[in-house]
């Protein structure tokens, strides 16, 4: 599919928009529909779209395997360490109110980091699954 001009041009237009929209969904999740799960899936879908057009090898150059595998684990660790930060600051596990001097602000901070963790893990797992299936079939460009 590499030589298809229409696909390449449309992809070039759409992929940045998809990734940007994923970030919007991530950080605007407090006020509108959205959050870590959706943002992670959308970012992964954007990268998978790129790889459908330009091939797996080109995608692996941009987002290499070790980055994806690190993302899979890092998201869970971010989430868990937000909980631990609550304990260290004198609260319960996953209690966000102590993360800042103002409980409401602390809640916002906690929700933000938890959503980041979710998005990173989901995006990493989706990409890893796709890489695994796509690289299985042998010589694909």
């Amino acid at each position: 599919m590499r030589d298809d001009l229409v696909l390449r041009v449309v992809g070039r237009l759409l992929i940045p928009a998809i990734l940007l929209f994923a970030l919007y969904v991530q950080f605007h999740g407090d006020f509108g529909p959205g959050g870590g799960f959706q943002a992670g899936v959308m970012a992964a879908a954007g990268i998978i779209f790129y790889s459908l057009i330009h091939g797996l090898v080109a995608t692996r150059r941009i987002v290499p395997d070790w980055v994806v595998e690190t993302m899979v684990a890092a998201g869970v660790l971010i989430y868990a360490s937000v909980g631990l930060a609550g304990i260290l600051l004198g609260g319960h596990y996953l209690d966000y109110s102590v993360l800042s001097s103002d409980p409401i602000h602390g809640q916002h901070r906690g929700i933000f980091w938890v959503e980041v963790g979710v998005a990173v893990t989901v995006c990493g797992v989706m990409l890893k699954i796709y890489y695994m299936f796509a690289s299985r079939g042998g010589a694909e460009d």
Binding site: G29, F31, P33, G35, G36, G110, E115
Partner: peptide
């Protein structure tokens, strides 16, 4: 947090 779904999900 205006989006209740996010609030319940994460907090």
């Amino acid at each position: 947090v205006p989006n209740v779904v996010t609030a319940v999900l994460a907090s």
